[in-house]
Design a binder for these strands. Structure first.
Lengths: 224, 224
DNA sequence: CTGTGTATACTTGTATACAAGTTTGCTATC
DNA sequence: GATAGCAAACTTGTATACAAGTATACACAG
């Protein structure tokens, strides 16, 4: 039974906590697609009232992980195909963001990205998959943020928790597969960083395409 | 004081109704950006309890129209720039969908789109802006649906109510500007239809680009 | 055995109550 | 007059209660 990192729940309400826990269980398959969950049932499981559960279910519904119906919420789950679709959307968002910031002076962003990669190496040294996945996530989120496009940022927000949770699961898997795999993940981020440093729209576009094409391949190896 | 069409609220809960009403008021500027609204205040305005209002505010927060904070929700509003950003996102989603269905046999979709255009002409004849805006919306939604991409469909869902509401407002404006303007809107949809009929990825991509480039121009004329 | 109708248990949507925390504004003191 | 401190009024988050609607299971009639 996997636990959602408590450190990621700082200051979260019960409703948010429940959403994170359920999200993790749905994505990692503990709660299977097709299952029907009711507010009362979840509330009993977590030992809380329906109010925060209701919040959580609405959140998960907005993320597309469940579908709210008259009698109970139907779990839609997250198959391998769904993760691939998630990568399609990430590509849409992240390539848009990168194209948008390509020509600009992003010294601050680049410094942050370099720092993040350094911390990744440290996390590898400490065999800390949890921190690593968060850093991986932060790397991509920093780029999206830099685009300063409210609506696209919002698109990102609507999938960010799913992305983070998928990364948590896949990173644990990658860590168990030996250092070579992990280092290649870091290297891919360095490649993105170098591309951004060129400020060349064409180079950046090409690198982002390759990043997601490659991620799709390794996805099949590591997910489920 | 504009009213959200009651016909669009069939079977909606109070919570959804409140969300639609508030959304409309925020987008048309009745509720201004920067304003702070509290659950109690809104509940009193609508003569309901906090429960459905809470639902509505969470919905609007998920749509990026307000930001939930400790003490009250801050209205983010929808400026001209925000509508432009909305079109950016629509372009991302709709061009993705159209590219995806480009090569396939879409006889059923095309028939539906033709039918929708016919109904548009009827709505013009009856000077029915409300119906027209809904048809316009349905045209684009049908295309997104046809792509059969759950995650992208979900992206669309997260903006669909905003898109519909913006269309309602702009269509009323367009209708007031005379028949020529309206007919040009219909013509733009016919152009998309013809492009889809060619099944040529290049042609379709070009037409979609032009559609949104043009929409952006006419947007400045009609919005606010 | 099959089909129908009803009672029951369970579901959500909404209303209300309470607790904990934040803001605001007044008062008292310097 | 200015400032510190306190009290009151607001806020959300959570718990609970109730109503209306839905599915289910069982009994009964054919």
């Amino acid at each position: 039974m996997r636990q959602y990192p408590k450190a990621w729940l700082q200051g979260a309400s019960f409703g948010e906590s429940i959403a994170c826990q359920l999200r993790l269980q749905i994505i990692d398959g503990t709660i299977k697609a097709g299952e029907v969950i009711s507010e009362n049932k979840v509330a009993a499981d977590f030992g809380m009232s329906r109010s925060p559960v209701r919040d959580a279910l609405k959140t998960l519904s907005n993320e597309g992980l469940i579908r709210l119906e008259r009698m109970g919420a139907i779990v839609l789950g997250m198959s391998l195909g769904d993760v691939e679709e998630l990568y399609d959307v990430r590509y849409l968002i992240e390539s848009f963001a990168q194209q948008r910031i390509a020509g600009e002076d992003n010294a601050k962003l680049l410094a942050l990205l370099r720092q993040t990669i350094d911390k990744m190496e440290l996390a590898v040294k400490h065999q800390d998959a949890e921190t690593f996945s968060y850093l991986d996530f932060s790397f991509h989120e920093a780029i999206v943020k830099e685009a300063k496009h409210r609506r696209v940022q919002h698109l990102w927000n609507s999938i960010r928790q799913i992305v983070l949770t998928v990364m948590l699961i896949t990173t644990e898997e990658v860590f168990s597969e030996g250092e070579a795999r992990i280092l290649s993940v870091i290297d891919k981020h360095r490649t993105i960083l170098r591309a951004l440093e060129t400020r060349d729209v064409g180079v950046i576009g090409q690198v982002v395409r390759e990043y997601f094409a490659d991620s799709r391949v390794t996805l099949h190896i590591s997910f489920q």
